[in-house]
Write a protein that binds this DNA or RNA. Structure first.
Lengths: 378, 378
DNA sequence: GCTAGCTTGGTAAGCGTTTTCCCCCTAACC
DNA sequence: GGTTAGGGGGAAAACGCTTACCAAGCTAGC
């Protein structure tokens, strides 16, 4: 009763409250809770009773300060521009791919007792670095989804906490995780060119400066050139990874009277969705008149009509790998000087695999939609 | 140089390092950085120089401990069951709706300098409470997406931090935010029954115990009964809010020879996607043979074929409202005893609006996909 | 010219944990 | 019976900040 009055209104109980209630010192409470030094059975019991009684849970900030470990990793996602001034003009779009990656990270993080501290940055924020630096100091490490910082900022940031980038480029101080864009795109390109015999292609790229988009484009261009096939690309073929962007690009091309190629290879599934939609509006049949392909194989890809041919990567695996890589850097850091072969500077590639569905011109698969393996290409 | 050796390998600089470099006390550094008490220009300059030199950013945990504010809110999402033992068996599905809500929360949170600490709980975890309690103490408040805790656990939790539930039920200590399920579903039901004249309906519900699913079902049942229309529902009509679940339900009903109703009303868009897919596999035309509708109007709804008729709610608005509500509870708490009219116990409903597209039997809209307003029902 | 009042900077006391010492007590060994 | 391990518990330091409190220097007012 008196302890109710000690703490102003009703702040959560502290370890002192528990110690007082159990008639022991705070050290004993901590030892019981953290399983250190094996306290006497009676002590343990008294403490646990007091803990249950008061509903005590240790404060995260204090714990982090003392243990020098927050058990939190920061995640930075790039948020597509807001189309106009209104608050949720971007509600049209969601970030299926990044969100699934985050889910993958989170599941693995939980096993290590870590949580994800998520922050999206406006693509057109003039200087997002302040907020990202603050985020870094709320966490034990950072995972960056897109290139939002300059190389120099990244270097400074990596002096504060370990950093892993996704689909970026590794530096001497940061690690990078990405999928095998080249292999995936080459398989897709060969399928379109050799299996289907398409002779005119276009590449709908992602947003400017995206290493993924550029690598995919380069691999496609290499295959096209090797086969002597025409490839259209450029600024007017930019989908920006978004459905709305893909739809807009096609609308404008058609408006300008640009003839459609036999196949449109999109930098990701979401922009392919927009392309499908725009083509449908103009009565252009897919894959009859124009074939369309995506990249990533997000879950909805198989629910579209026609079902989208894509390049599958383990999206959650990407997130899981990113977290594990970061985790090894975090736990290595304290032992600094000892093992020097850290993950820093590593560039980790995950496999990518062609998934043939209808939108490339292949016949409809009879597979049950919830199964992935059975519809996977050889 | 000596300071390099002071701190073991290269820990980030502390406020002491800055103070030493600038030749002032730590109090002055803190005052300059936090804009308190307006220090002398020369002092400010020296400090800022040292800060820039060393790349100092204050530690979040220490700051949180001292300020009694972490500037973090925890978010708990329920993760669908893993279909089998493998790690990513649930990769088939993503959580478009919760993820968009989170995005809405995050955008608003950023304005207040808050970040989101995200944790998903396995639906079949026997006791997720330990982890959730720990999350609570890493945050200033909690937003819970689904009912994952018992009422009693929720009550204990709300003694630690303010709590807002989404699509739950408010209690004396927690607030709740949800959309106007009744109005939305009634509008949809009337459209199907009166505008289209359908006489046999089915309700594909979400997961067990979901208040949203039950309210939507109840509203539909009320309209159906009022119009003397047949409504099929029950355990065999459970989609569990997931595409795979919706597809599975339809497959099994067909396998058991259950005749399809004229219209299937799904508890959300994702399960409707699965239904569309399953019907397509069996050559059942939508909306010709069977009409299908969703709920939520997630972005992909308009990219499906046929475009999905749904009930629109401002998904990001839901998240934004949840955060604002929680924020008011957080900032009210310190002034305890003073203003007693907090948000606790409030039940906030956001509007829901019918969006007619093709899957209910309406003619194809000519609207550009990236525009929402123009295809919205009256 | 002396003191009241204001500005400015430093010292130190928190914030709530974990963990390092250190002390005490018991048991075991010679 | 005296000495020594060794286990268990408590006091206190440390973690890196913010801020209350205090001291000093200045200006201004009489």
């Amino acid at each position: 009763m008196s302890s109710d009055l000690d703490r102003m209104p009703n702040q959560p109980p502290t370890i002192y409250d528990v110690a007082r209630a159990a008639g022991v010192s705070i050290a004993s409470v901590s030892r019981v809770l953290n399983g250190q030094r094996n306290p006497r059975a009676e002590t343990r019991e008294r403490v646990l009773e007091a803990v249950a009684e008061l509903g005590f849970v240790p404060d995260g900030a204090a714990r982090a300060l003392s243990a020098r470990l927050k058990e939190v990793v920061g995640v930075v996602v790039r948020r597509p521009r807001w189309n106009d001034g209104s608050m949720f003009a971007d509600e049209d779009e969601n970030l299926q791919f990044p969100d699934m990656i985050n889910r993958g990270m989170e599941i693995v993080a939980q096993r290590h007792g870590f949580d994800l501290l998520i922050r999206s940055v406006d693509l057109h924020d003039p200087d997002p670095s302040r907020r990202i630096f603050a985020l870094a100091r709320k966490s034990d490490g950072l995972i960056l989804h897109d290139r939002v910082l300059s190389v120099e900022q990244l270097e400074r940031l990596s002096r504060l906490v370990p950093i892993v980038t996704l689909a970026g480029v590794p530096s001497s101080t940061t690690a990078n995780v990405h999928c095998d864009n080249e292999a995936g795109m080459r398989a897709l390109a060969r399928h379109l060119i050799h299996d289907h015999g398409y002779r005119t292609l276009a590449y709908l790229c992602g947003h400017k400066g995206s290493p993924d988009s550029m690598r995919r484009g380069a691999a496609l261009a290499a295959e096209a050139e090797a086969a002597g096939v025409t490839l259209a690309e450029g600024e007017e073929w930019r989908g920006g990874y978004q459905a709305a962007g893909g739809a807009r690009a096609i609308e404008q091309l058609i408006a300008h009277g640009v003839p459609m190629p036999r196949a449109i290879v999109c930098a990701n599934d979401q922009s392919a969705m927009g392309v499908l939609h725009a083509l449908a509006r103009h009565g252009i049949s897919v894959p009859g008149d124009v074939a369309v392909t995506g990249f990533d194989d997000i879950p909805v890809a198989r629910h579209l009509s026609p079902q989208l041919t894509s390049v599958r990567q383990s999206i959650q695996g990407l997130g899981a790998t990113a977290f594990e890589t970061l985790y090894s850097m975090i736990s290595r850091a304290p032992a600094a000087g000892a093992v020097r072969e850290s993950a820093r500077g590593k560039d980790i590639a995950l496999p990518a695999e062609l998934v043939r569905r209808e939108s490339c011109g292949c016949p409809r698969s009879a597979a049950v939609p919830s199964q992935r393996g059975s519809e996977t290409g050889r």
